[in-house]
């Protein structure tokens, strides 16, 4: 029964992608349009386009910048968010300003950041990714810490948990579901910024490659880049869900128990 259930799940999950690919395949099969090459042609050039040299020199550096920028945003967002969430004065002081900066779409910052951190190096790209990913994590961390149950906080105080224990065992653990929600948003923003940060003045990288294919009228190759980006985004989101599944198992259980009660 469970095997059957799993199979049903798998069929449900794969049905639409399979149909979409099939539609694309057949609809584009006889295409002679320059900008709309047959899917068979795109698939054909995929391996030669993304060969080992390109993976090492374009894809991996892009992913590494994403990982570094995202990690910086995660650490800074949680640290700053906890501090703001725990301190009402700090919150009153910072919140209007933070709301202002949050409202600025990160891509418009790319040229400004590039002016200060350089066009071609890694720094400006990492800063762009980190800045963009910071907001959802930061604001969710603030809300998560503010939303901590006061009975839990009282419990922590009455058992005289040390500041450090209180911070790591109560504040961070307790706000982690909300932080995870912010981190999930940040991940998709990060992927977008990974590409956008390479659109200006970069000659290597996943996003830069796609732009170069486009400018060189290497249309099938450009399409392979877009497909590769989609696949990377999908893989990252699956990875995120797996991590979340294990680290927030308690939260899932708690919510199920609450619903059952």
């Amino acid at each position: 029964m469970t095997v059957r259930k799993a199979l049903t799940q798998l069929v449900l999950a794969l049905a639409l992608p399979v149909v979409l690919v099939a539609v694309w395949w057949f609809a584009s099969a006889g295409s002679t349009s320059f900008f709309w090459p047959p899917l068979s042609r795109i698939v054909e050039v995929f391996p030669e386009t993304w060969d080992a040299e390109r993976l090492v020199n374009d894809v991996l550096p892009s992913l590494a910048r994403l990982a570094i920028g995202y990690s910086i945003a995660l650490v800074a967002g949680v640290a700053l968010g906890s501090a703001i969430g725990l301190n009402p004065t700090l919150r009153a002081f910072l919140e209007p300003t933070l709301e202002f900066f949050r409202a600025i779409p990160p891509p418009v910052l790319v040229p400004i950041i590039a002016l200060f951190a350089g066009y071609t190096g890694w720094t400006s790209k990492i800063v762009t990714i980190a800045l963009g990913c910071l907001w959802p994590i930061l604001l969710n961390a603030v809300e998560g810490v503010r939303g901590l149950d006061e009975v839990l906080v009282d419990t922590s105080r009455s058992y005289r948990l040390r500041r450090r224990t209180h911070l790591f065992q109560v504040v961070l653990r307790g706000s982690s579901p909300q932080v995870a929600a912010g981190a999930r948003q940040a991940l998709s923003i990060g992927v977008i910024l990974m590409v956008i940060s390479e659109l200006f003045g970069a000659n290597r990288g996943l996003g830069a490659s796609i732009v170069q294919f486009q400018r060189a009228f290497a249309v099938p190759q450009m399409w392979t880049g877009i497909i590769l980006l989609g696949l990377i985004g999908f893989a990252l989101s699956v990875l995120f869900r797996v991590v979340e599944h294990y680290s927030l198992a308690w939260y899932r259980g708690l919510r199920q128990a609450d619903r059952g009660a």
Binding site: L152, T155, G174, Y251, G253
Partner: peptide, 14 residues
Amino acid sequence: AVVFQEYGRSLFPW
């Protein structure tokens, strides 16, 4: 030591 009324909210769920 204090035992609170809201047991569900006084135990650390994680």
